[in-house]
């Protein structure tokens, strides 16, 4: 039975992996030692997820429109199931995410992967978002009041 913390860790890993570029994952995969072996349980497949919104942002739910999503399920040598679900249609990336999901559940591999894959990917995302917020902040209006007459 997975504990609350296991689930939270896995959620964090999957959120980071889903946003990582395929190149970063491909490079990281090539460097994993010992080279992981895995079998594909459900081959990568592209489908749709209906995106739901809320009226007024906080009210009743409605269907806003769909997005493309690709998923893949693999099993590691140790028999651990890895699941990848990513926005978009990159089947190879979905497979890599599933593989890393399986490997990150292996205590003998996870500290290194956490350091060499998750942390750098998370760092990239933070930097990207910080750059957006810095440019947005530069477009913030500083109001001043013009005194009339006197």
């Amino acid at each position: 039975m997975a504990t609350q913390t296991d689930t939270a860790r896995r959620q964090r890993h999957l959120a980071v992996l889903a946003r990582a570029g395929r190149g970063l994952l491909e490079d990281a995969f090539a460097l994993v030692q010992p080279a992981p072996r895995y079998e594909v349980v459900k081959p990568a497949e592209t489908g749709l997820v209906m995106v739901r919104g809320r009226a007024g942002g906080t009210g009743g739910q409605f269907n806003m429109g769909e997005m493309t999503v690709t998923r893949c399920v693999v099993r590691s040598e140790q028999g651990v199931i890895g699941v990848g679900y990513i926005a978009g249609r990159d089947r190879r990336k979905a497979e890599l995410v599933a593989v890393f999901d399986a490997l990150l559940q292996d205590p003998s591999r996870s500290p290194q992967l956490e350091r060499e894959v998750i942390a750098p990917a998370e760092q990239r995302r933070r930097e990207r978002q910080a750059a957006i917020r810095a440019r947005a902040a530069a477009t913030r209006v500083d109001f001043f009041t013009v005194m009339r007459g006197e």
């Binding site: 489908g47 749709l48 997820v49 209906m50 995106v51 739901r52 919104g53 809320r54 806003m64 769909e66």
Partner: peptide, 14 residues
């Protein structure tokens, strides 16, 4: 032409 995997949780636009 694509299968539907399901629906997302409602977006948190806040």
């Amino acid at each position: 032409t694509l299968p539907r995997f399901g629906s997302s949780l409602p977006l948190d636009t806040g």
